[in-house]
Nucleic acid binder design. Structure first.
Length: 394
RNA sequence: CGGGGAGUAGCGCAGCUUGGUAGCGCGUUUGGUUCGGGACCAAAAGGCCAUGAGUUCGAAUCUCAUCUCCCCGACCA
């Protein structure tokens, strides 16, 4: 992608509405835009990061045999009355009626819907276990949305649900999911603390919370504020019993399906990753979630030599499968360097004066600021790709 | 929902105490010089001063009400 064609509206100054560091950087780097309190629009860079996170999640879910589904945002109120959570959830639920006077809500969570779904297809122990998950928008009428994506009224969650015929099966699935979560957060570049938690309104017995220590956190671990990015629960039979999701066991007896549920705050993860990966210049994306693998900063793109080499390096990297952004804008070098550091692409390749003088391009590592010169002359037999591999940046 | 702060150009802000019809920096447009860390010169565009009702000859400025945003608390799968 050529930056001159890209929609990356970076800001020099921090909008005054932002307080949390992740919020400030998300606005300045042009990741998101606030529409109204607690409601955000994802701009191209933010969406790319979101998609990368989602794909890491899909990959790890697939590894533990979870099936992706896509349930609805719109839900009928009556399933909430049946589960008994209508009263408990009514403050956060966004409710309304349609023109036929049907009572609906925008789903704040999906235990009820998924239980109805599984109930309608599963009736034998032979169909169990099964695990389903979705990446879906949730709606909650928060009293005080805050800190950008950390607490918003419309947010993206990955919610998984396991269905088992016995407790041993549940424990096994719970363990798989727990390990999948550890992998997901590691790949997202996060340092996570896991604690035993109170199941609260979700019900069930065993529960763990995944917390990311950060200044803008609302929870606490070991005294330090932290952001809750995930919560998993061994639900048991709370929902299956309330909604009548039963199966016939080997002896022909009817039993409620044993459930677990596993949530990750996907949009909140973007904020959490930034909270743990930034410096005074901007964001430092961990490799797997970065919106681009490499940014080519062409200082003075109007210069023929610089432009030719920049375009050559660009197509070479693109052809080898790299996701590359090239800064071809006619702006002072300082602006381009600052933008490069602000948006946090892991590798910055600078092509400029030195390229003309010494036939070298500069490879800068965003995370540690280290710089390496690379000769682009015909006599150099090492490819740029090999050099990047040698530097362990791809 | 309680307490505090704030709404003036795209962004950041000044002006308000002591009313006289709006200004600065950045950004934007045009032309030129620049080109390795937010560069310079010249010209220009852009505002119902959040909204409504008062007070006054006259309101961004004073009064009252409303809306919105931010922070602290309460609440929070």
């Amino acid at each position: 992608m050529y930056w001159s064609n890209a929609f990356i509206p970076t800001l020099k100054e921090t909008p005054k509405d932002a307080e949390a560091i992740s919020h400030k950087l998300m606005l300045r780097a042009g990741l998101v835009k606030m529409l109204t309190a607690g409601v955000y629009l994802y701009l191209p860079l933010g969406l790319k990061v979101l998609n990368n996170i989602e794909n890491i999640i899909r990959d790890e879910m697939d590894r533990v045999g979870a099936n992706e589904v896509y349930l609805s945002c719109l839900q009928p109120r009556d399933i909430w009355l049946k589960s008994g959570r209508d009263a408990q959830m009514q403050d956060v639920m966004i409710k309304f009626t349609d023109r036929k006077n049907r009572e609906l809500c925008l789903g704040p969570t999906h235990e009820e819907v998924i239980t109805e779904l599984v109930k309608s297809y599963v009736n034998s122990y032979k169909q169990l276990p099964i695990t389903l998950y979705q990446i879906q928008t949730k709606f909650r009428d928060e009293t005080r949305p805050r800190f950008g994506l950390i607490r918003s009224c419309e947010f993206i969650m990955k919610d998984a649900y396991s269905f088992d015929k016995d407790k041993i099966g549940l424990e096994k699935n719970y363990k798989f999911m727990y390990e999948a979560y550890v992998n997901i957060f590691k790949r997202c570049g996060l340092d996570v603390k896991i604690i035993q938690a109170d199941p609260g309104v979700m019900g069930g017995s065993v529960s763990h919370e995944f917390l990311v220590p950060a200044e803008s956190g609302e929870d606490t671990v070991e005294g330090k504020p932290a952001i809750e990015i995930a919560h998993i629960f061994q639900l048991g039979i709370k929902y299956s019993q309330a909604l009548g999701a039963n199966f016939l066991d080997k002896d022909g007896k009817l039993n409620p399906i044993i459930m677990g549920c596993y949530g990750i705050g996907v949009s909140r993860l973007i904020a959490a990753i930034i909270e743990q990966n930034y410096d005074d210049k901007g964001i430092i994306w961990p490799r797997e979630v970065a919106p681009y693998d490499i940014l080519i900063t062409a200082v003075n793109f109007q210069d023929d030599v610089i432009r030719n080499i920049s375009q050559k390096v660009y197509s070479q990297l693109k052809d080898s499968g790299m996701n590359v952004l090239i800064d071809d804008r006619s702006l002072p070098a300082g602006v381009k360097f600052n933008d490069a550091e602000l948006i946090g692409v892991p590798i910055i390749i600078v092509i400029g004066k030195k390229t003309i003088e010494n036939n070298t391009i500069e490879i800068k590592i965003r995370s540690n600021g280290k710089k390496f010169d690379f000769n682009v002359g015909a006599q150099n037999t090492t490819s740029l790709l090999d050099k990047l591999r040698e530097l362990k940046c791809i």
